[in-house]
Computed example of a mutant assay.
Amino acid sequence: MPQLRFTYLLCFAVLAAFLAASAAQAHHGWAWATDEEFEITGVIQSVRLGNPHGEVTIDVDGEEWVVEVGQPWRNDRVGLSKEMLSEGREITVHGHRSAREGERLVKAERVVIDGKDYNLYPGRDS
C-alpha cells in the first residue's frame, strides 16, 4: 500500500509540474493576447522592471491597466530605462490586450513617452 501511495504522489507531482510549466509558457508568449492592434494612453502609477518582463501600471480614466514591457535586455536595447518609466509620466502603449474579457492587461510592442517611440519588438507591426 505505501508503494501505491508513493506512485500516486509521484504521478501527481509530475502532472502538476507539467501544468505549471505549460501555463507559464502560454502566458509569456503571445497566445493569451488578442491578434488585433490596441492603443492606450495613461499616466504611470507604478513600475516593476525585471525578469521575466517588466510591468507598468497605468491609470486610464480612473481604471488601472497593467502593461507588460520587455525583458531587461529588450528594454535596454531600445533605451527604455526606469527613469523613462517614472511615476506621473504619460505613456502611450501600442500592442495587444488580453483576450480574457474584462482583464485590463496589455502586451506592449511599442511605447511612446514624451513623443519618442521605443519599439520593443521591431520585427512586429505596431
Results as ranks from 00 to 15, higher is better:
residue 122 P to I: 13
residue 34 T to I: 05
residue 99 A to T: 06
residue 81 S to M: 04
residue 47 V to P: 00
residue 19 L to S: 09
residue 37 E to R: 14
residue 114 D to R: 11
residue 64 E to Y: 00
residue 112 V to G: 01
residue 50 G to P: 01
residue 53 H to M: 06
residue 87 E to R: 15
residue 67 V to L: 08
residue 106 V to K: 10
residue 38 F to E: 08
residue 63 E to K: 13
residue 38 F to W: 10
residue 27 H to I: 04
residue 38 F to S: 02
residue 110 R to Q: 14
residue 1 M to Y: 12
residue 79 G to E: 10
residue 105 L to H: 14
residue 4 L to M: 03
residue 7 T to A: 10
residue 30 W to P: 03
residue 76 D to R: 13
residue 116 K to L: 06
residue 58 I to W: 01
residue 117 D to H: 15
residue 34 T to N: 06
residue 22 S to C: 08
residue 61 D to Y: 07
residue 43 V to Y: 01
residue 108 A to W: 03
residue 24 A to F: 15
residue 9 L to D: 12
residue 96 H to S: 08
residue 93 V to G: 04
residue 124 R to F: 09
residue 109 E to F: 13
residue 82 K to N: 03
residue 14 V to F: 14
residue 77 R to G: 00
residue 73 W to L: 05
residue 44 I to M: 05
residue 23 A to T: 12
residue 126 S to N: 11
residue 107 K to Q: 11
residue 2 P to W: 12
residue 41 T to Y: 03
residue 95 G to N: 11
residue 69 V to N: 07
residue 109 E to M: 05
residue 56 V to P: 04
residue 56 V to I: 14
residue 35 D to R: 13
residue 41 T to D: 03
residue 55 E to A: 05
residue 87 E to A: 14
residue 53 H to K: 05
residue 6 F to G: 00
residue 9 L to H: 06
residue 117 D to P: 03
residue 57 T to V: 14
residue 56 V to A: 01
residue 17 A to W: 15
residue 77 R to W: 11
residue 54 G to P: 02
residue 72 P to D: 04
residue 111 V to D: 10
residue 56 V to K: 01
residue 12 F to K: 09
residue 52 P to I: 05
residue 45 Q to Y: 01
residue 69 V to H: 07
residue 27 H to Q: 08
residue 85 L to N: 04
residue 62 G to W: 05
residue 10 L to H: 05
residue 92 T to Q: 10
residue 94 H to T: 03
residue 54 G to N: 01
residue 9 L to A: 08
residue 38 F to I: 03
residue 10 L to E: 10
residue 120 L to I: 12
residue 24 A to H: 15
residue 69 V to G: 03
residue 50 G to R: 03
residue 119 N to W: 11
residue 67 V to D: 02
residue 97 R to Y: 04
residue 20 A to H: 07
residue 89 R to F: 14
residue 108 A to P: 02
residue 118 Y to C: 02
residue 2 P to S: 12
residue 9 L to C: 09
residue 102 G to V: 13
residue 106 V to C: 07
residue 104 R to L: 15
residue 27 H to C: 01
residue 125 D to L: 12
residue 59 D to V: 12
residue 105 L to V: 08
residue 2 P to Q: 11
residue 118 Y to N: 06
residue 39 E to Q: 12
residue 37 E to D: 09
residue 51 N to E: 06
residue 101 E to S: 11
residue 125 D to T: 13
residue 87 E to I: 09
residue 125 D to F: 09
